[in-house]
Design a protein around this nucleic acid. Sequence first.
DNA 1: CTAGGGTTAG
Length: 587
Amino acid sequence: MARAPSSILIFLRQNPRARQNPNTQIRYHTTETKECDFTEVAQHICKIIRTKPRWEQTLPSEYPSFNFSDPQFFTELLKLQKNVLLSLRFFFWLSSHNGLSPDPISCKALFSALVEAKACNAAKSFLEHTSFSPEPASLESYIQCLCEGGCIQDAIDVFYRLKEAGVCPAIMTWNAALSGCLKVGRTDFVWKLYQEMIECGVVADVDVETVGYLIQAFCADNRVSEGYELLRQVLVNGLVPENAVFNKLISGFCKEKQYTRVSELLHTMIAKNRAPDNYTYQEVINWLCKKGKGLEGLRVFNDLKDRGYAPDIAMYTTMIHGLCTMGWLGEARKLWFEMIEKGYHPNEYTYNTMIHGFCKIGNFEKAKILYKEMCNKGHKETTVSYNAMMTGLCLHERTDEAYGLFQEMHQKGIVRDLITYNTVIQGFCKEGKIVESMNLFRELLAQGLQPSTYSYTPLIQKLCQVGAVQEAKGLWNDMKNLGLEPIVGTHDYIIIGLCDQGDAAEGMEWFIEMLNSKLKPKQETLGRLVECLTQRDRLDDSLLVLEFMFRTGYALEKGICHSLVNKLCWEDNHFVETCLGEILEGK
DNA sequence: CTAGGGTTAG
C-alpha cells in the first residue's frame, strides 16, 4: 500500500521499532535538527489551529516530523495563542497522536492559562483527562475560577484537597468562594466555609469583604437582624462594607416592614460616605410596592427626581411594575411616556411589565398593541411575555384562549416553564375543567419539570370540591414526598372535602394535625367541621372544635349552632348552658 | 471603565 512520506514519519514516531530501518533513520535525524526555532513553528501552528477548523487531519502532513513534545514549544504556543481552548485542543491532539505522556511543564502552563481565562469547565476536564496535579497556589486560583463559574461544589472539593495537603488558602481565595456561594444562593456552603475558616485560623485575616459576604448570607437566610448586628460591630472597628451589603440589609428590613431600620441604614450610608444609589432606592420602592405601600413608593420615587437623582430604566420599570400591581395603570402609563421622553426606550422588562399590567385589568386590546410594538422593536417573544398574556387570560375566565397560546408556544419553539404550566393548570381548575388540568399536570411531569406547591394547590382544591378527596389526598402525599410544603388553605379544602363526604372522623384528624403544625384553619372550615361532627353525633369533638373557634375569635353560623344545641339538649342540659354561655360571650 | 438591580403563577 502506498503511503505519503509524511504519514510514514508519523507512523515511525508512534512505532519506535520501525526506526531501526537505516533509511528512515537518516531522514528522522535531518528533520530533528531543523526543529530548533520553536517560535517560528509555534507561530505557524497557531495560525493553522486558529484558521483551519479541521486542522487535526491536515497538521500531520504540514509538520511531518516536528518534535512537538518539547515543553519549550508548547509554552511558546500558549504565549502566542490567545484562545486557550484552541491550545487545549492542540494539547489533547498532541498527547493522543504523538503518543507522548504530557510533560509537567506544559501541563502547568496550560492549566494556568485555562484558569486565567476563567475557562472553568475546560480546566475541570483537563484535570480529569490528565494525571496532572497542580501546586497549591495554582489550586487557589482554580478555586476562584470555579466559584466565578458557579461550580461551587467543585470549588469546595478543592478546598478539602488543600486541607488534606495541610494548606490553608489565603483570605482572597476564601472571599472568592464565599462570593460564589452567595451568587448561587448556597448560604449553607457559606456557613460551612466559614466554619473551615475558623478551624484553619485564617479567620484572623478576615477583612471587610469577608464580613460583607457574611452579612449578605444572613440577609439571604432571612436573619437580617443578625446581619445588621454584624454590620454595627464592623462599623465600630472602622470598616465600611460596600453599597451592595447595605442594600441587602435595606431590602431585608423592607421585607420585614422594619422601616425604622431602613431609615437608620440610609443615614449610616450617608454618614459613612456610601451614598445610597439608584439600586438602593429601587429596592426600597420595590418593597414598598410589594408590601402594599405603593403610594409611599411613588412618593420616594418622585422625591428622588425632585432631588436631582436620575432614575434609570430599571428604576422606571420597578415603579411601573409597582403601579401596575396596584392597578394604577394610568399612573404607570404616565411614567412610561415620561421615561421615553427622557430618552430611555422600553426594553424587554419594561414591555413585559406593562403588558402584564394591561392583561391583569383585562385590557387585552392595549396589551396586544404593546405586544406587537414590542416585537416590531426587535424584542423577541419569550416564555415571560407568553406567561404574562396567559396569566391575564386565565384571570379573566378565558383559559381556552390561554391554552391556545400554550399550544402556540410549542409550535414557535418557545420553552414552556413551570410558571406556564401552573398558570394554565390553575386556569382550568378555576373553570372546573379538572380533566384538562390533570392532563397538563401529567405533561408537566413528563417534561421533566419539577412541580411546585402551586402546581398541586389548585388541583387538590378542585378535586376536593368535586368530591374526589381520595385523589386529592394522593396528590397531597406526592407533594409531601417531593419535600413540598402545602399552603395553609390546602388543609382547609381537604377538611371541607372530607366533611362533604360525611367523613367527620378523618376531618377531625386533619384538624388536630393542623393544630399540631400550628396552622390556623379558616372560620368557614371549622363551621363545616362542627356541622359534620354534629350530624355524626360526635358532640365532644364538636365542642372541642367550638372551643378552638371561640379562642380564635371565630363565630359559628346560626344554623349550625342551632343543630348543635339541639343535639346537646338531648344529651345533657348542663352542657347546653355552658355552651350557650360561651357562644354569647364569644359574640 | 461601570456591574448590580427591574418582567411572568401563587
